[in-house]
Amino acid sequence: MISDSIPWRDELLRVADRLEQKSSQRRWTERSSFIVERDIMTSAYAIRRLLEAGKVSRKTYAATVPVLRHEARGVRPDMWNRHELEDLYDLDAPQASQLALRKYCNQLIHSYVWGINACERTGLFDGVFAASEKDCHEQVFFVPVKSMVDVCRRIGGEEIWGSNLLRDKSGAAYWVSLTREEVEAERRGDLMDDPVG
């Protein structure tokens, strides 16, 4: 359990800044690729840890991440071909989609298919392709840099003022943290049942 979420949040804000800088970097090296992958993995792990520890607000817990979804072409990804995205997925027909935060994190952390992408027009880093081992047979997700930066800044900049122990529909208990606005609304009796459960 995370007792102090501030170091995790601070790291998310630093990752957001670095990813944003990388999206305008002209000279790209192997080290650049390593830094981007490290930062994306670190941020996904931090977000998942904060979610599991109940250190995000109800509104953020229910938030989604905008991505593009590409359907599989029917070729099974394996150790030898998983980098051949054009052969595995229909990259010409992206479908706008939204990933729940936990699924977003899992696609990155458990990525079986992974690829850093550059914009064809500018040549600049514009996002990553990722699919977990569980999902890679059906689809791959393209996560734009902006989506990653936005979610890191949202969670990194969130000020938590309190927390509540809630129960989902099955009766399982979990902690949800509250922002100042949510604490004040709860005091006034404005908050309804938890929208997540």
Rank of each mutant, 00 (worst) to 15 (best):
R82Q: 14
V176Y: 06
V143T: 14
N81Q: 03
Q95C: 08
V149W: 04
Q98W: 02
V149K: 01
G74R: 04
K134Q: 10
C136I: 03
G171W: 10
V128P: 00
P144A: 09
D150A: 11
D135L: 09
W161A: 13
D168C: 10
A130G: 03
H83N: 08
E181N: 15
D126A: 10
L68S: 12
A118C: 09
L91M: 14
N81R: 06
V67M: 07
W80N: 14
F141P: 00
R69D: 07
L178T: 15
D150T: 08
V145N: 06
N117S: 13
E86L: 06
G156K: 00
Q107N: 10
G156A: 01
V75N: 05
S163H: 07
Q107H: 04
N117H: 12
K169T: 14
G171E: 11
L85A: 12
V67N: 06
D90T: 06
N106V: 02
R73Y: 00
Q98A: 06
K134Y: 10
L101S: 08
E158A: 02
G157K: 11
W114H: 11
L99G: 08
V145R: 04
F129W: 11
P144H: 07
G157Y: 07
F142I: 00
K146Y: 05
I116K: 10
E138P: 06
C152T: 04
A100M: 14
A93R: 13
P66V: 01
D87Q: 15
R69E: 09
S170A: 15
C136E: 06
A172V: 15
V183K: 15
R76W: 02
K146E: 12
I116T: 08
L101I: 13
D87M: 12
N106R: 02
M148K: 00
L99F: 04
R76C: 00
S111I: 01
I155L: 01
L124I: 08
M148L: 07
C105Y: 06
T122K: 12
I116Y: 02
E84R: 12
C152V: 05
Y89M: 01
F129R: 03
L101R: 10
A96F: 12
V176N: 10
D87R: 15
S163P: 00
R154N: 11
F142Q: 02
G171C: 11
L166P: 04
C119G: 13
E158G: 04
L68K: 14
L166Y: 11
L68V: 05
D126K: 12
D87I: 07
S170L: 14
E71T: 04
V151F: 01
D168S: 08
F129D: 00
Q98P: 02
P144Y: 10
K103M: 08
W114I: 01
R76D: 02
V128C: 05
N117Y: 05
L85P: 01
H70W: 10
R180K: 15
A131S: 13
N106D: 05
C152P: 12
C119V: 05
E158C: 03
E71C: 02
A72I: 00
I109L: 10
W80Y: 14
L68F: 14
Q98H: 08
E86N: 11
L91P: 00
H70E: 07
E138A: 05
E158T: 05
N164D: 13
D135G: 03
V67E: 04
L178M: 15
I109W: 03
D135V: 02
R76Q: 08
F141H: 07
H137G: 08
A118K: 15
D168A: 09
A72P: 00
A130T: 02
E158S: 04
V176C: 13
